[in-house]
Write a protein that binds this DNA or RNA. Structure first.
Length: 273
DNA sequence: GACAATGTTACAGT
DNA sequence: CACTGTAACATTGT
């Protein structure tokens, strides 16, 4: 699922839909689905109002009126679905947690593979410390900062793009798509990239992410927005999931290899080492 | 049955 | 020490 554009779509929808709602309770199915970093109970969320919803990297931050925050990470298959009071959940086979509101609507956390995570932070200090592991936001970093951050990194460019402690929010789909736009081979060593190539890459990253946000993300298999709708970026993809399909630019077949442990798609003609 | 899947982290090996 | 690859988490679909 969910990389920056998908998480951003969920967050902006949630901000419009649940801001100001009062929480009646947070229920988790199975003990391990909610982690409490501050050794406090989720009872602290009861009767609180939603202050705002924010994104940091691939994390969804649901800020409450008492300064505490519920943090959700969807990992591979998580979905946050907003349901009105009269909507049942029998269709959803992997509900892990439910946030109930006082108007009887609810936010359901459905996650097939159960990799997703809900964490609870009592105050901004502990939240900030938890999020401090994250690197820069790709849509906010200055182009020259990106260049200096990446130009001397060890290893290949794709592995480094996936590192959330350098730049956060890029996942497998948008790494492949950004590298294609800049005609950079995913296995190119960072040290072999010119400043011009890195400059081109950060421009591609911003372009790809913004375009994907405009189209409300990519749905490969599991991703749905809070209203249960698919993202529409899927048809815009140039390389991801297009193995053996002709390149939209040159007609050569898109290749799939393994880089940094992940399936990696590229055009062997447009992207040469 | 084997394998891969949008993510992240821990650990073994080189 | 640094980097790379694999396993692990759990489930589904091809």
């Amino acid at each position: 699922m969910p990389e920056l554009p998908e998480v951003d779509t969920v967050v902006s929808d949630l901000n419009e839909i649940i801001t100001g709602k009062r929480i009646r309770g947070l229920f988790s199915i199975g003990r391990k689905n909610i982690k409490f970093y501050d050794d406090v109970s989720s009872n602290l969320t009861i009767k609180q109002k939603i202050k705002s919803v924010e994104r940091r990297g691939k994390y969804i931050l649901i800020h409450l009126n008492n300064n505490s925050t519920i943090v959700v990470h969807l990992r591979m298959t998580g979905q946050l679905l907003y349901l009105l009071q009269n909507i049942g959940t029998s269709q959803l086979k992997h509900i892990r947690a439910v946030l109930n509101f006082s108007d009887d609507s609810k936010l359901v956390f459905n996650d097939t593979r159960n990799f997703g995570e809900i964490s609870f932070f009592q105050d901004k200090k502990s939240l900030t410390s938890y999020l401090s592991k994250l690197g820069r936001e790709p849509l906010e970093i200055k182009n020259d900062e990106f260049v200096s951050l990446f130009k001397n990194k060890k290893g290949n460019i794709k592995a480094n793009l996936l590192r959330q402690d350098l730049i956060c929010g890029i996942g497998n789909i948008y790494a492949d798509e950004s590298l294609f736009l800049s005609q950079i081979h995913p296995q190119t060593k960072c040290t072999n990239l010119s400043e011009g190539e890195l400059l081109s890459l950060i421009r591609s990253i911003k372009k790809v992410l913004k375009n994907a946000i405009d189209l409300r993300g990519t749905s490969m298999r599991d991703y749905l927005d809070v209203n249960g709708n698919s993202g529409k970026y899927s048809t815009t993809l140039n390389v991801y999931g297009r193995t053996k399909i002709p390149c939209k630019t040159c007609g050569n077949e898109i290749q799939k290899i393994k880089v940094a442990g992940r399936g990696t798609h590229f055009c062997p003609n447009c992207q040469q080492k």
